[in-house]
Design a protein around this nucleic acid. Sequence first.
RNA 1: GCGAGAGUGGCGAAAUUGGCAGACGCGCUGGACUUAGGAUCCAGUGGGCCAAAAGCCCUUGGGGGUUCAACUCCCCCCUCUCGCACCA
Length: 952
Amino acid sequence: MAATSDSAREDVPPYRYTAALAAQIESRWQERWEREETFHAANPVGALSKGFTAVAGRRKYYLNDMFPYPSGAGLHVGHPLGYIGTDVLGRYLRMNGHHVVHTMGFDAFGLPAEQYAIETGQHPRVTTAANIETFRQQLRRLGLGHDRRRSVVTSDTGFYRWTQWIFLQIFEAWYDDAAGRARPLTALIAELDAGAREPAPGTNPFGRRWAALSQAERRHVIDDHRLAYLREAPVNWCPGLGTVLANEEVTAEGRSERGNFPVFRKPLKQWMLRITAYAERLLDDLERLDWPENVKEMQRNWIGRSAGARVRFPSLAGDIEIFTTRPDTVFGATYLVLAPEHPMVRALIAAIWPDGTREAWTGGAATPAEAMIAYQGSAARRTEVERQEIARTKTGVFTGSWATNPVSGARIPVFVADYVMMGYGTGAIMAVPGQDERDWEFAEAFDLPIVRTVEPPEDFRGKAYVGEGPAINSGFLDGLGIAEAKRRIVAWLEEHGVGAATVTYRLRDWLFSRQRYWGEPFPIVYDEVGLPVALPAAMLPVELPDMNDFAPPAYDPHDADTAPEPPLGRATEWATVTLDLGDGAKSYRRELNTMPQWAGSCWYEIRYLDPTNDRRFVDPEIERYWMGPRAPGDAGGVDLYVGGVEHAVLHLLYARFWQKVLFDLGYVSAVEPFRRLFNQGLVQAYAYTDERGVYVPAQEVEEHDGGFFWRGRPVTRQYGRMGKSLKNSVTPDEMYAAYGADTLRVYEMFTGPLDQSRPWETRAVVGSHRLLQRIWRTVIDEETGACRVADVAISDATLRLVHRTIAAVRDSIEGLRFNTAIARIAELNNHLTQAFAGRGVPRAVAEPLVLMLAPLAPHVAEELWSRLGHPCSLAWEPFPTANPARLVDETIEIPVQIDGKVRAIVLVASNADQAEMEHAARADARVAAYLAGRTVRKVVVVPGRLVNFVVG
RNA sequence: GCGAGAGUGGCGAAAUUGGCAGACGCGCUGGACUUAGGAUCCAGUGGGCCAAAAGCCCUUGGGGGUUCAACUCCCCCCUCUCGCACCA
């Protein structure tokens, strides 16, 4: 590494821009920005409104980064890529008349923070505070133009008090399907009491009207309406982490996203948030967002809307309801399949195998019950790897029962098979092997009848046919296309009361409890009969008790028979509390689970706006000013949200959900939290492993003879993430020491467009340092330290280049292509070095150069600006504007092609017409030589572009 | 398997959206200043033919097409990255 202290060398000019000088300049300007409150953004009202009148006429702009969780490893150079990008844009917008709010907080609750604390044997409160301090110092050195007053930490009581408050709003609300929005439960109760409505379907198991229900029954009905509710259901239990997880936190391989531990399904009573009520709106409103298409697509896939029908198949055990997207194929349903966990399986299992049961259907067992036990047992014993490998081979077992196809009247067998998931649709399907590949495979394996209901084309050679075609073997549907057949059959099903059109989502309700210590406690207590009671807002925050034995029990990660045990249960004094909640002092038990990692990040961007408000989570006027819709139909939200694509589903879906609840309840004016999303790329790096597969320090690896070596031993190289454990981390601190923060900023922005991943290359950083050195030298005499600005004439060519550079730099920054902005600045400076060598530079050139550099390398730009004689910071100085008249040259160089190949360059007036251009081209000696004795078949002249003679 | 995106010098990349391919850098080569150079400055640097220059030819993953003109538009294929994956 080039960590030299060259300023100490005698032959280095005394006023050269070196790492040492950069360090001085950077700390001086950082202090000054802080002292002068340069980046404080004023709210229209409230505690942070000082100075608002001065900026009231500006256009507001809310710029936000996905906030980091403060890990113990500190920052590496990959972390700040997005932060630098947003800072460049923020500074640019500020110089263009915008009123920019930009800050940075910390996502401090959650598993990573707690695990780090456990590893280091310290309390998470201590490690979190220390880690945040490290992050703040590293980030401060970057010179980010943030309003630090607005920084929030999700684990501070002043913050999580409001996370708890929002949970209470969710708890005290229900989704009014008729109105298409969430409403307070008080409104529901009023309408029920007034007889204006009856409980929603599925919430009243008592079979009597509201007016006839007892107090306890009414309580039950109300609890079933809540957007936050307790439910006993199979959840994702992860012994390795000691907690249950949301579906979004479990990988397709059935392991925890964090830590990669096995996850088991286990029935437990847990808090759920009714995100499914918002499925349609979460899907529809994606259209209103300026987000990367791949992220929208990921959310669409996760929500997984499919339109189809539910159909009831009568059986001796009762009606079996199935979901299908192809109701038109119902005549071809030759058997039913239930998921192994389906509640009706037990009732469907016959005592003995019916007569004529085929050998293949029994699995060799003596009775259906035995077969079922064997089948469920073999599924549970399979390892994940085996499940992946045999995922496509169909297994299952006959229940011994039959059902009736309600349309064709056919008697069809009922199977249980693990290719049907309990979590989707109704957990049961009608199998139509003729039109479904999976059903075909199963039908082949179990020798079941196959009836085609859509006629395949003549040349079709496959098995199941899923394409378009006329219906066959389908009674009154015969001859119809799929769409029309669907319409007819759904009408028929509804008319005969055996089915209905319906929409199903893949999205499940959000499992919201975690058996961990380091999270927000729920603002919930349980009364003497074990029912949850919300604490009044006045009792918030429910503070996390200070505990020394906060770690969850250490389970064997592979032991499915363990059970979660919230650490807060050990805080016995805290866990029981005597309260007067309106009916006298009584003893209550507290909720012992905590909220998941994602709770704080669901709304932190709102709190940034009004971080000190202790009466509301945000003042409505402040929220409307920064996040409100700009026009009717506009979703509102943060103007630009920058972060990694890894949050495409989890955080971004949860935050949208909370935003919509808050919107429905009238607390915020924006329907969406993030109007525009931008995914920055990763900074990647090479990592090296020795022959045992152990990582070796990447910085000590040498490349020679076509191979890589560490201490003389060959190592293998792989490319990927940067990380401490991979021994390929480079810290910003190393770069600050070697070159300064401005160099690091410029380097990171120079390696490519912001949305692209790029490799880190320490040896290339010097190029950005040299650029700053050269710009410094353009303005400052390295020997004397004097400003080189002089009263010298500017050529038209130079002036044009300045204006062209301004136009290009503006365009590049606005498109978040900072690499090309830097290239154009470098180009201009290279030109100035030549054009004004030894003469000093004109002010009219030096000043725009410095101002253009300012968003990218703000410290050195401020220093140069001040040395150019300006007493004030340039942070609010107008960004240079290009004069359109200065962009065009009087004469331009035009390529002349013969048959599409450039053979000459001629000079023509920029406004030359076609004839003049052709004339100029023919006048060129080389062109004339090429054309001599040949017939020109065609001449293409594009004014201002080129001339092409076609002779071939 | 399905969906999305991407393939340009040794490396990171650029190309006003169909008009001089490789801007700006790293690296490399040579030179200057030097006790020294892992500092700084200057020059050169896609490949080939040629002693060199001039000149000519080739070149944006591969193949075909449209066009006076294709990194850019169309068709087929290959490779890589990401997401989803028995979702009925």
